[in-house]
């Protein structure tokens, strides 16, 4: 398990290298390519995140007390966004996930995606990740 705070700082530092939105988006698309992909069997209605214009599937597993996330999306910008979230939240303890804020999204210049009018469902993705963490925490306790 890496320190979740360090991962967030690392992401903020990476995005700080870019001068404009285009480079940031290109980088985000690049990050999407390294997304730990969800097993095809979980690409179903049970794992789809509602509220997204594109399709996003997220699956969670518990390994050695840590929640491991996998995901996929049919849109590549969305895939980049979920990849960033998974990089932060995957392989963390449920309570760490629940306690961690998402201020880094603002810092990497993606604040616009947090608006509830945005159809990409970033807010729903975060909510779903936290729901999984809550479910596993309840299970552990």
């Amino acid at each position: 398990m890496s320190n979740i705070k360090e991962i967030k700082e690392e992401i903020v530092d990476e995005f700080a290298m870019f001068d404009d939105w285009m480079q940031r988006y290109e980088y985000m698309i690049e990050l999407g390519k390294s997304l730990p992909l969800i097993d095809e069997q979980y690409k179903n209605e049970d794992h789809i995140i509602k509220g997204c214009q594109s399709k996003v599937w997220v699956h969670a597993d518990m390994k050695d007390g840590l929640v491991v996330f996998t995901a996929d999306s049919d849109a590549i910008i969305t895939k980049g966004i979920i990849a960033i979230l998974i990089r932060v939240f995957s392989n963390q303890a449920p309570n760490t996930i629940l306690e961690t804020d998402t201020d880094f999204i603002d810092e990497i210049g993606l604040k616009e995606h947090l608006s509830p009018t945005r159809a990409n469902g970033l807010v729903s993705m975060i909510k779903q990740i936290k729901m999984y963490a809550l479910a596993y925490q309840t299970k552990v306790n």
């Binding site: 939105w21 285009m22 988006y25 849109a75 590549i76 910008i77 990409n120």
Partner: peptide, 21 residues
């Protein structure tokens, strides 16, 4: 091969307002 949402997001950055979905 490209999702409409991705196109809409990028061209919005360029000042173009279209509907996707």
């Amino acid at each position: 091969g490209i999702h409409p949402y991705d196109i809409g997001t990028i061209i919005d950055k360029l000042g173009i307002a279209v509907r996707t979905g």
